[in-house]
Design a protein around this nucleic acid. Structure first.
Lengths: 146, 146
DNA sequence: TTTCCTTGGGAACACCGATGCGCATCGAAA
DNA sequence: TTTCGATGCGCATCGGTGTTCCCAAGGAAA
């Protein structure tokens, strides 16, 4: 894990479609050496895989909603059940255990062919151990290169 | 844009490293047809590109912080300058214009070789038009398949 | 200095992406 | 019903690229 590996990771984290030759050029290596580095990074588990970047349209023109969740209590079992149920919930794209007022902060993606009203009623309220849900609506999500 | 295209998008959104043959199998198409579909989706702009999924370690073992931002005012120019400055801020991985109390919600990634104290002081406070920053710390981010 | 080990470069091979062709299917028009 | 045109599939082919050799160069240890 040296400077070149860092460059490779930075590059592939942004755009992975390039050939070994192109990658080698950008990091100052021959195609074969660049290729070998990438394979090593994959074996080491630093590169987990590859996926397509999809347009908003391809993702169903989602709007983003943040939901602060307070559980009925903070017992280990309660939190564990809640988290396990979350993992099976497609609409929740991120979940964070939080300090402060509420217990969890969820990032929910609402596809345009769905509605938050339905998700709130049928999905989020149905999660086990939920005491209170506070919704923050986004007006617009800024484009990020991330 | 039919059922097969949806399957392809769903598949490539999760894992894009497979060959046309493997992709064709999963969506019920010959390799050449699957390949042609993918190229069309790329041309249509539904598939924007490809990137590597990086491990937490490869991303610098970041911890996540949410920051609610209130601007000095909500004039067009103020918001625009703030947003432009945001775009040049690497640590801010997401930014949402919000309804409710504060104006923006930022998701900030703090690499373990950095500190939130520094980012707060040198990066976030330095953004133009900022009136108030309220930080919510995450204790733990749940693993998501997203 | 010698040896070992790591890492890069070059070349050969195999595989897969890319594309042209023929054919089947479907819908529209007469 | 028949015909025409368009669309999209599968097959076959070709070339580019991934993959894997081997060898050389450089650095560390003895």
């Amino acid at each position: 894990m040296d400077t070149i590996d860092s460059k490779i990771i930075a590059q592939l984290g942004q755009e992975s479609g390039l050939t070994s030759e192109a990658l080698g050029e950008r990091v100052g290596l021959s195609p074969s050496a660049a290729h070998r580095r990438v394979k090593t990074l994959e074996q080491q588990g630093l590169i987990l895989g590859y996926r397509a970047r999809l347009s908003r349209a391809a993702r169903g023109n989602p709007s983003t909603v943040f939901v602060s969740v307070t559980l009925t209590d903070q017992r280990q079992a309660t939190m564990q059940q809640f988290e396990q149920a979350l993992a099976r919930t497609l609409q929740v794209s991120e979940a964070h255990l939080m300090s402060g007022e509420s217990d969890y902060l969820l990032k929910v993606l609402v596809r345009e062919d769905d509605s938050y009203e339905r998700i709130h009623r049928e999905v989020l309220s149905a999660l086990p151990g939920v005491h209170r849900l506070v919704t923050q609506f986004t007006i617009r999500t800024l484009a990020t290169e991330d």
